[in-house]
């Protein structure tokens, strides 16, 4: 095998990590706002958020290409105001990863925020806590196991994004060549060894991630909250 070009690994990780941070922050706050409130149009908003999960990545890619293309509504603005083009840049890789991974984080976070008894938040308010204190000391810690599952899924999805990335960012070595793209183009050019190498890395990462997540959620289930009365310290 030729000398290995590690760039796809670095690019994939950088993109997935930054996408996960952005998706986490936006997803958590949006989910907290929407989870326990009902208002007119909520169903439509949630459907739009979840859409990338059910659409083929090429369709998501097409939509992004339309939005961010030179003549697209956002792309034109960016070009006119900042002389900046998203398509075929690292930003395109990042945007594709964010959009396809967002529904997973939102779904996990919304479920996590619905999962605990809302009376706990009411109790905190009656004790004089304001909204932020209630969020950071009650809502967030209680939702954390579900949020963490969302983080793992988001990271994995962002790491593995292919279709939308290819549509929006194309395959440009040392610019947009994430691992999934590197695999595809290695196979295209008949370099099966290289493709196999990246495949092995992705499988190993995914497997480790899922193992850890399973272990962690099992540990949580058997954690403090369910300890029998007899095992207490006194």
């Amino acid at each position: 095998m030729d000398a290995i070009n590690w760039y796809p690994l670095w690019l994939s990780f950088k993109t997935a990590a930054i996408a996960t941070i952005i998706v986490f922050i936006v997803g958590v706050f949006l989910a907290r706002m929407l989870a326990r409130n009902t208002f007119f149009g909520k169903g439509i908003i949630e459907a739009i958020i979840m859409l990338p999960l059910v659409l083929p990545p090429t369709v998501v890619g097409f939509a992004l290409l339309y939005l961010f293309g030179k003549n697209g509504p956002i792309g034109k603005l960016l070009l006119d105001w900042f002389d900046f083009q998203v398509v075929f840049s690292w930003w395109a890789v990042l945007i594709a990863a964010i959009v396809v991974a967002f529904p997973l984080m939102y779904q996990s976070a919304a479920a996590a925020f619905k999962n605990y008894d809302a009376t706990l938040e009411s109790a905190a308010y009656t004790m004089g806590a304001g909204k932020w204190r209630v969020f950071w000391t009650i809502s967030f810690p209680l939702a954390w196991p579900g949020l963490l599952a969302g983080v793992v899924l988001t990271f994995a999805r962002a790491l593995g994004e292919f279709g939308a990335t290819l549509m929006l960012a194309g395959y440009i070595p040392h610019v947009t060549d994430t691992i999934p793209l590197a695999i595809y183009f290695a196979v295209e050019s008949g370099n099966m060894k290289m493709a196999g190498f990246w495949v092995a890395i992705i499988i190993a990462l995914g497997f480790t991630g899922m193992l850890w997540l399973n272990w962690w959620s099992r540990r949580k289930i058997h954690g403090d909250d369910t300890k029998p009365v007899s095992s207490r310290k006194s």
Binding site: T119, L120, S122, M127, T137, P141
Partner: peptide, 28 residues
């Protein structure tokens, strides 16, 4: 709610499961 100075003991107590007894009581 937080400015009413009203103590409320809920039917199922609503103790914060992730905090110790002491932290529950010192919360407010």
């Amino acid at each position: 709610i937080q400015h009413r100075h009203i103590g409320y003991l809920f039917q199922d107590y609503a103790l914060f499961p992730h905090m110790t007894v002491r932290r529950n009581i010192t919360y407010g």
